[in-house]
Computed example of a mutant assay.
Amino acid sequence: MNHPAGPAFDPARWRKSSYSGSDGGCVEINSSTPGWVGLRHSKHGDASPVARFTSAQWRTFQTEVRTRLTGANGIVEVDEHTGGWDVRVLPTGAVLQFSAFEIECFRKAVTAREFD
């Protein structure tokens, strides 16, 4: 189940992977709230929609990212195309758009278990 209005995350604890480029755009995560992980686009900062995962949903999503099979996590739907990913946050319908480079950086970080 998606929880669009909560929980809140510590604004100072959003982080990108070590694989992120210097262009400023990347997937950002925040695990400052016990039992929860937030995902947003760094290029939009605090104005970005946030996908909120329980810890179990986050583990499922990371497995999906590693295996390139997405759709079973219940929080986001991913439309993967040559230009990158459109990530639709359920049920709000908000869309996070990531370039192919941003997604590849995120995938490398997930594979390296930076966000476990």
Rank of each mutant, 00 (worst) to 15 (best):
H41N: 11
D79V: 09
S18V: 00
A8G: 13
V37Q: 03
K16D: 04
I75W: 07
C105N: 08
E64L: 05
W36R: 01
P49C: 08
I75T: 02
I29L: 02
K16P: 04
A72R: 15
N30K: 10
H44E: 14
E77N: 10
P49V: 06
S18W: 13
E77H: 13
K43Q: 12
F101M: 14
T82R: 15
T63A: 15
A100V: 00
H41S: 05
V78W: 11
F101W: 09
N2H: 14
R15S: 06
P4D: 06
S42D: 02
F53T: 02
F115Y: 09
G71M: 03
E28N: 06
V78S: 06
F106I: 11
I29E: 05
V95M: 06
G83N: 04
W14G: 02
G84E: 06
R52K: 15
E104D: 15
G83Y: 12
A112L: 02
T60S: 12
H41D: 08
E114Q: 14
S20F: 00
A72C: 10
A12L: 11
K108F: 13
G21A: 07
P91Y: 02
N2R: 15
R88A: 04
S22Y: 12
M1T: 15
T82W: 13
T60L: 14
L90F: 09
V110T: 02
D79P: 04
V65M: 05
H81L: 03
D116Q: 10
S48N: 05
V110C: 01
A109P: 05
C105M: 05
V87L: 07
V65W: 06
R59K: 12
H3A: 12
V27E: 06
G74N: 01
I103D: 02
W85N: 02
S31D: 08
F115C: 03
P34Q: 07
D86P: 06
N2E: 10
L96A: 03
A5E: 06
A109Q: 07
G6N: 00
G71Y: 04
F101R: 14
S22F: 14
E28G: 01
R88P: 00
I75P: 01
L69H: 14
D46I: 06
V87C: 04
G38R: 04
S99P: 02
D10K: 12
R15C: 09
T60C: 11
G21F: 13
D116Y: 08
R15H: 05
G25H: 09
G45H: 10
D86W: 11
E64W: 08
I103W: 13
G6K: 01
S31G: 11
C26Q: 05
R107E: 07
R88T: 15
L96W: 04
R113I: 13
N2K: 13
S31R: 15
Y19G: 03
G38V: 06
L39N: 08
K108P: 04
V89Y: 03
R52Q: 11
I103R: 15
A109E: 01
E28P: 03
A100D: 06
I29S: 03
V37L: 09
D46M: 10
